[in-house]
Design a binder for these strands. Structure first.
Lengths: 198, 198
DNA sequence: CTAAAAATATACCAATTGGTATATTTTTAG
DNA sequence: CTAAAAATATACCAATTGGTATATTTTTAG
């Protein structure tokens, strides 16, 4: 059964995750947390060990939300190569969607945690690796299905894709201009068409 | 002439710029500043209006350093297209070099200032625009010199280049793996070769 | 409905935050 | 060498920081 505390924990994360994502670890204070949730420190510290523990849970919460959204979107096709196109299609709406999350958690927390918070940075690394592995697997599935040329290195391609996407997200947010994401997705679509085709 | 205060200001910036760059605005405290410099608050506040003013000066200091380094490197050739290759060549050593600066100032402060510090974010935007304009001008020079195809849109290409580079820097720092920068520079070199050629 | 357990609120803590007014020291121009 | 000006150090400020011990309230199982 769902205890009261579990509900509260979920509620806290819902409210607090975008705040940590937007502001970063150091710039989010516990009074930000109590003000936003309407709860007291007693409730917060009853559910989370400390600020770092809360920040990590918040990051995981946001990533889970995001991953579910991608996975749902990719379920629109069974073809590996079509799924690749669905990835770029997903990111074409990412600026709007990620604003709800308080920005891209990987970019924000990746940069924020660097030199600041080892545990948090470790979590970001793990998420990036997981994403790259999933994309690489998708490409390998495509090779196996005869949709994608067996010439290409799946993991390398996945890393390139990821790198370009993160660059586009950074530029779009910093310049407040969706051009960067749209243009990068065009570029990636072209790469898929030209480099992956059988 | 150089007054005492000007020397002190420069000294403070030299010491403090990498700290702000590494930690970000909120996570850098004035005691970090006084401890690192060995000066007191009196000296700091005598030379800078407040913490924000210092952070902006620190960002400009780091960018100036970086820009000089790039400009120096590009002076190794007079050919516009060769200069483009010198840009990727510069970034191949960027992981090592930028560590001295406390990381890439554009990436770090761009992400850090977002949702946090309007003035600082504005400075980042200006620097990005300046860089893109310079690269675009370089490409236009190449077109005029008959080295580069007149088909391509100089500013679009400059933006793509910048976006890919920033993505590579983010990934290399977050994953602590220079692969991303090297691979992206290979990719860009290829783009220059294939897309820009006459 | 009740007693125990769980969850939350309250009241406190020392340390630190950015910043300022003023005293002291150092530099500068003559 | 000296007086004025500039630069820096000192001593202070209220507000906030993350965190804890304990009191109170709410939930839960029987």
């Amino acid at each position: 059964m769902t205890t009261k505390a579990e509900l509260t924990s979920q509620y806290i994360l819902e409210i607090v995750a975008p705040i940590f994502n937007k502001n970063g670890y150091a710039a989010t204070s516990l009074s930000d947390v109590t003000n936003a949730t309407g709860l007291t420190k007693g409730a917060i510290y009853g559910n989370f060990k400390n600020k770092e523990d809360l920040a990590i849970a918040a990051f995981k919460f946001t990533v889970k939300n995001m991953m579910k959204r991608i996975t749902d979107h990719l379920s629109n096709s069974n073809s590996p190569i079509e799924k690749l196109y669905l990835i770029t299609d997903f990111y074409r709406n990412y600026y709007d969607y990620s604003k709800e999350l308080g920005g891209c958690p990987i970019l924000n927390i990746g940069v924020d945690a660097n030199n600041q918070n080892t545990l948090l940075l470790q979590k970001v690394k793990e998420v990036i690796e997981r994403i790259q592995d999933q994309v690489a697997t998708l490409i390998e599935d495509g090779i196996e299905a005869g949709e994608i040329s067996s010439e290409i290195n799946a993991l390398y391609f996945a890393k390139r894709l990821d790198t370009m996407i993160q660059g586009a997200i950074f530029m779009t947010y910093t310049m407040e201009d969706d051009f960067y994401i749209q243009d990068t997705m065009d570029l990636i679509d072209n790469m898929i068409k030209k480099e992956l085709k059988i």
